[in-house]
């Protein structure tokens, strides 16, 4: 995983609640054998017309939101199935930050496993951000994970809470595997002893 750095980016607005994983990545794309390349299918059924052209009505298709790394969305984002394809698609599309009032549990965990910072804010704060974006589409926010702050041009900035363990992992770019590999010496030592105790497993 890339270490998560302080950055400034366009904040895209999705003023919808209960966006579920079936919408994030519809099931017809789950048979793929890759983990990458899901970005083009993100929000497929909303994003494209039946003939495959872009649906101009869909918010993320607005030119002002092109290239956004930050997604501001309504309550209970990412509910539904446990498919890890959902955060894969979000990250592959280019988002590394989501701001919402709440997330489905599994989705929330999966975000951090895939380098996505999911920020929780209260309803009042979210409303302010939504109003700021609506009034000025294409507005850029600064996300500073180190100091747990979001800064906006209109002064709607706020600080947020985050589990120190998750924060550390994002900042260092360590995924679960990277974390485990910090213990690689212990794994190697275990294997040496394992070979002595159960030699037939290695014969």
């Amino acid at each position: 995983m890339e270490p998560y750095k302080k950055h400034e980016s366009i904040a895209a607005l999705m003023d919808r609640s209960n966006v579920d994983t079936d919408q994030i990545i519809p099931k017809q794309f789950l048979k793929k054998v890759e983990r990458s390349g899901f970005g083009v299918h993100l929000f497929h059924d909303w994003r494209f017309n039946d003939d495959g052209t872009d649906n101009a009505e869909f918010e993320l298709n607005k030119p002002a939101f092109k290239g956004a790394n930050i997604l501001v969305a309504g309550d209970n984002f990412g509910c539904g199935s446990s498919r890890e394809h959902a955060p894969w698609a979000i990250a592959d599309y280019g988002f590394n930050t989501i701001i919402s009032t709440s997330y489905a549990d599994i989705f929330y965990n999966n975000c951090f496993k895939n380098g996505i910072l999911a920020i929780k804010v209260d309803k009042e704060q979210l409303d302010k951000l939504m109003i700021e974006i609506s009034a000025n589409e294409g507005v850029r926010f600064i996300v500073d994970l180190e100091n747990q702050q979001v800064i906006t041009p209109a002064g709607n900035g706020f600080s947020f809470e985050i589990d120190p363990f998750r924060k550390g992992n994002l900042l260092s770019g360590l995924d679960d595997i990277g974390l485990t590999l910090k213990h690689v010496d212990k794994i190697s030592a275990y294997e040496i002893q394992h070979k002595q105790t159960y030699p037939w497993l290695w014969a």
Binding site: E34, R35, S36, I177, E191
Partner: peptide, 27 residues
């Protein structure tokens, strides 16, 4: 806790993204 795995069984449906992940991370 981290536990050691002696045997790992595989079939075609749930493994492809895992292999791709390995490749992408150079592991």
């Amino acid at each position: 806790p981290l536990i050691y795995v002696d045997r790992h069984l595989m079939h075609e449906v749930t493994s492809p993204q895992a292999f791709e992940g390995l490749r992408l991370s150079g592991r």
